[in-house]
Every structure is written in structure tokens, then in C-alpha cells.
Amino acid sequence: MPEGNQPGGPREQFGDIAPALAGYSEDVLFGQVWEGSDLSARDRSLITVAGLISTGSTEQLAFHLGRARENGLSDEELIGTITHLAFYAGWPKAMSALTVARTVLTAN
């Protein structure tokens, strides 16, 4: 399900101050892009998690780790991704990602 259709989606989160960006997030990103048939939801989640870790975008990481689990990635695969990226994206980024992962993966 696209993030925009969930409680707390972009329109609800920041539609009052950035309605255009909220709309693009829901309609294009979580609509057209995430619902495309060229990649599976699982693959999209793995790519997204890797991209967020590589750029140090940990604020968005918690949501996408949860979504990755919903899309079929195991906790072991997610931790393996973070470990692998430590050598390609940088140790500090991987350690920051582990801090987020510990919270998300141990919550359930």
C-alpha cells in the first residue's frame, strides 16, 4: 500500500506547508514509482534502504526498514545490507543505520 494511503502519509504530515511536495510524494513516488511493474516491492525496498543508508538519510530509514519487512526482507537481510554498505558507503553511515535498525527491528 502506498505510504500516502496510510495514516501519517505525506499529505497528513506536511501537506499544510508543502502541498505540492506532499502530492508528488503520494501520487508519483508512492503511487507511480512504487507501484511500477519493473521491480518487485521487495527489490524496491532493498534499493531504498541501501540508498538511504548510503546517503546518511536516517530520518527516513525507520519507515523504510519497516516497509522492507512488510515487503518480505528478513531482519538478517537488512542487517546484512547495513554491514555490506559499511565498506561501500562508509562506517559512520552504517553505524548510524544500525542505531535506527536496532530500534525498528527490536520493536516487534
Rank of each mutant, 00 (worst) to 15 (best):
S40W: 01
V28E: 13
L39P: 00
S45D: 06
S40H: 02
G51H: 04
G31W: 04
A20D: 15
L21Y: 11
G36W: 09
L46C: 02
S40E: 10
G23Y: 12
V49H: 02
S25D: 11
Y24I: 14
S45G: 05
G31R: 05
A41S: 11
A50Q: 10
G31E: 08
S45Y: 07
V49I: 12
F30L: 01
A50E: 11
V28T: 12
R44C: 06
D27M: 07
T48A: 04
I47P: 02
D38L: 15
S45N: 06
L29P: 00
E26W: 02
W34T: 01
R42C: 00
S40M: 06
R42L: 04
D38G: 13
L46S: 01
A22H: 09
D16C: 09
R42W: 01
L39K: 08
G36F: 04
S25M: 13
I17C: 03
Q32K: 15
D38I: 15
E26Y: 03
V28D: 10
I17V: 15
R42S: 00
L46V: 10
L29W: 11
L39R: 12
L46D: 03
W34V: 00
Y24K: 07
F30R: 01
D27N: 14
L29A: 13
V49W: 04
L39F: 06
Y24Q: 11
L39A: 07
P19S: 09
L46I: 12
I17P: 02
G23S: 15
D27S: 12
I47Y: 11
R42N: 01
I47D: 07
A50V: 08
S37Y: 05
P19G: 09
W34K: 07
L46A: 11
A18Y: 04
Q32L: 14
S40N: 05
A50L: 10
I17S: 02
D43W: 00
G36D: 13
V33N: 06
G36P: 01
A20R: 13
L21V: 15
W34I: 02
A20Y: 15
S45V: 02
G36S: 14
E26F: 00
L46G: 00
A22V: 13
W34L: 08
I17E: 00
F30N: 01
D43E: 13
E26R: 06
T48D: 02
A50G: 14
D43Q: 10
L29C: 13
S40I: 02
I17A: 01
F30Q: 00
S25L: 10
L21R: 06
F30Y: 12
L46E: 05
T48G: 01
E26C: 03
I17F: 06
R42I: 01
D43I: 03
A50D: 10
S40D: 07
P19L: 05
V28H: 15
